[in-house]
Design a binder for these strands. Structure first.
Lengths: 338, 338
DNA sequence: TTGTAAGCGTTATCAT
DNA sequence: ATGATAACGCTTACAA
């Protein structure tokens, strides 16, 4: 069954040596055209396939990169992976994927497993609950290029690809102000994560720049799900001074908020505007489509892959590159008054 | 920098031989507790990491599987991959992913690349445009387990994990009939693909069973996108005998249809019911949530992984397993009259 | 209990 | 232009 043809089989069949076969296969100049042709033909005939494992062991390069994300079935992450794969596959790289489930322990496991697998690089988005940094140093010490995308930690020698979350928050908030909203609330994820902190800061700055005050009651930190969006609105409804718009750092929160606003009979966008973040597919499919900040995940994946390639090109030169992509606000019905 | 510790380094440090180190590391019984402890300690101290590549080359097993899908950022597929990863990772397997972009040529490339990488198995969903089967035989001839999920070809020796598309079509159509719909149309993808053919057949059978006739004008074969849904409705509107429901073999088609029905002022579900297929995330988020047939992709991934594991357990026994999962109809507003 | 040595499939450095 | 051989890091008979 398992007919594995090696260069030795070809060599034997041709009464030459494996070295010659290898040379023929790798179009090494030191070989006659005649034998080269012969080798190529018999190789095809015997259905020879190069064993990349042996090559990897020999060369020390596996032509494989590891990608670590919290969950692979989240659109944002799978789109990034798509971007990475499409950039790297044509160059002969394989992409191994791991999920952390947002757990630090699993993240550490993943990294170790990938190092064991001798990957040529690790591209990852840091888990929400990661506090230690030892495992990253570990990677660097082994000389394996490490690239963070979206969620990063500040570590010397590690390149990052992120979007400008501050700008995203600023642009979204500015847009709401321009729609005539005066009391703009903010729903955010855990602000110990940089991305949420920056979105919040962008929001604050926009309010400031346009002479609006930040109302503490209007800033809510919560989980990234629909139910949390409901709860946030319930809370707002009890306020004397209710908001008339929300900039949400998550589309799911935004969706939950919209659902609950409707339940309270509030008209969107006439009485209340909402902008989300991430441009999840569903935001544009809704009848009341939701404005959202797009993070161009595929481009982020492409870019992360390119940064990795630069890194690997000059392994002697230590490159630390910080690429910041611009987010794009997608204006839809949930915030279009004009 | 690149401090790669091997068992030889440990051996040297301890004045013993690499074989002994290996034994200690693999808790081989033939070793004294003393040296074993010593080895383990120094291994930890020297930060030893086993090189899986060397192991793979030696053992002939890479502990890696390849997964091939059309696009990784389609929710259905990324969920399957999640299911595969979660089943296989705890057993020490890595998952390499490839995208075909629905092209046969790329599919063949992917398979060859994975074989070169010495994967222990290939789990895949066949590309829409695949007509040749040689590359699959190729895999089998190498003795590499092959498992198809969702989109399959009938090949001897290949296990498959699918859902019962006939049942999905039947259940959805029956549900529409029970809602009182009398003129149920069907939007389908390319029926040269088994999955769409079976959904169509389930639809037909349900109509038959309940004494309804199939109206040829009500069966449309088209692309799986929103625009095609619009067009289908436009066509239906010109008919004398208009349908009063749609069973669509795609959620995107269903969404397009709903959008266009609304444009025509038709009330859903009162005047017209719609059921889609795949249970895309957006279907349940819509204000007018869309009924859909769920394919339980994570379970499908889990199952595909398990089937692979059985295959690999007894590599001498040729197992050909056909697992068919039951689809679950999710009834939502777009078809809830009661 | 430990050491020796072969082998997994390549490529690269020598010779020839 | 080709052959012989070592090396990549590991496991595993076989010997001691």
């Amino acid at each position: 069954m398992s007919e594995k043809t090696t260069i030795y089989d070809i060599a034997k069949a041709l009464n030459i040596t494996a070295a010659t076969v290898s040379r023929a296969l790798n179009n090494n100049p030191k070989i006659s055209q005649a034998t080269k042709k012969l080798v190529l033909e018999t190789a095809a005939k015997m259905n020879y396939k190069q064993n990349k494992l042996a090559l990897a062991l020999k060369s020390g390069r596996s032509n494989t990169v590891g990608v670590i994300v919290p969950y692979i079935d989240r659109n944002f992450f799978s789109s990034i992976i798509r971007g990475i794969e499409e950039e790297l596959y044509p160059l002969g790289y394989h992409v191994i994927i791991c999920q952390t489930h947002e757990e630090e322990g699993t993240e550490i496991d993943n990294i170790n497993a990938l190092l064991n697998a001798q990957v040529d690089g690790i591209l990852m988005s840091v888990s929400k609950h990661t506090t230690q940094l030892d495992h990253f140093d570990h990677v660097l010490k082994k000389g394996v290029p490490l690239v963070f995308f979206d969620r990063k930690k500040d570590i010397k020698g590690v390149s990052t690809v992120t979007i400008d979350d501050f700008e995203g928050g600023y642009t979204a908030t500015k847009h709401l102000i321009e729609q005539g909203c005066k009391r703009i609330a903010h729903l955010s994820g855990d602000r110990s994560l940089e991305i949420y902190k920056h979105r919040y800061e962008g929001y604050k700055k926009a309010l400031e720049d346009f002479g609006l005050k930040v109302n503490k009651d209007h800033v809510v930190q919560c989980k990234n799900d629909i139910a949390a969006g409901h709860k946030a609105i319930d809370k707002f409804m009890k306020l004397d001074h209710r908001p008339d718009a929300i900039f949400s750092s998550s589309d799911f929160l935004a969706l939950g908020a919209i659902q609950q606003l409707k339940k309270n009979g509030i008209k969107i966008p006439e009485e209340f505007c909402v902008v989300g973040f991430s441009n999840e597919p569903f935001t544009k499919f809704m009848e009341l489509s939701i404005s959202s900040v797009d993070q161009s995940p595929v481009l982020m994946g492409n870019t992360a892959a390119k940064v990795f390639l630069e890194q690997v090109k000059d392994s002697n030169v230590k490159i630390e590159k910080k690429v910041v992509l611009s987010p794009k606000l997608k204006i839809r019905k949930s915030s279009s008054r004009s």
